[in-house]
Amino acid sequence: MADRETIPVLNVEPPPTAEETGTDIESDLRQQLLITQVDSVLTWARRSSLWPAMFGLACCAIEMIATANARYDIARFGAEVFRASPRQADLMIVAGTVTWKMAPAVRRIYLQMAEPKWVISMGSCSNIGGPFAHGYSTLPGVNNVVPVDVYVPGCPPRPESLLSGLMLLQDVMKEEGVLGKRRRPEPDGDFSTMLPEGDPIRRELEALFPPYLSVSGEPRDTETGALPHDTNYLTMHGGSAPGGPA
């Protein structure tokens, strides 16, 4: 795609056929009127019922709770259903200081959420580390662990700031659409400049980034995604659950 865009205007080659490039269904779909209408309806539905995952890491969580109370009433934006399970949540509000000890848990919660998912970084601590940015125990910005859509400054941000962040996120979702490209930068999973070699937290964090090797470096099962030492339900029964789909 990038090569096609950089062709000088005077030397335009005929666009490559589907056999040359492989069919690019997404770029074809984006042009069609019906799909764009469905896209706008889907985006409206998504941004009007963002369910946050219910967890708070520090004092910012108190302001997050205050945002859900009647005085500010985050339910006006359809985001009042704080889910106790990340499987049911669309939005992760990282509210507070992310310590190195908590970072693998935050990354794991993010991985457990179902796509599509969005992340709001709330407060100076989670934005860049805040007053602890040069400390030994705090992650310098949660964007080293999860991709962040919207940053809300404050220490802690007042509920109005969090509501502004939520409204900005709704604008972002409207702009990106369902088929659009996500513009947030993905973390690269490289902690070599922050943690020493052999650090247990560094090994645990790196196991949570692609290619998702185990902590000791063993590959996962290609079908089930299980680690070699896992004895979960699927691997116990030879890769397929009895009574379920084969």
């Binding site: 934005n127 910005g141 940053y151 700031s161």
Partner: peptide
């Protein structure tokens, strides 16, 4: 104001 939310932290 409270509306200084950003998408890029360097804008802060």
């Amino acid at each position: 104001s409270y509306t200084n939310v950003v998408r890029d932290p360097n804008d802060l």
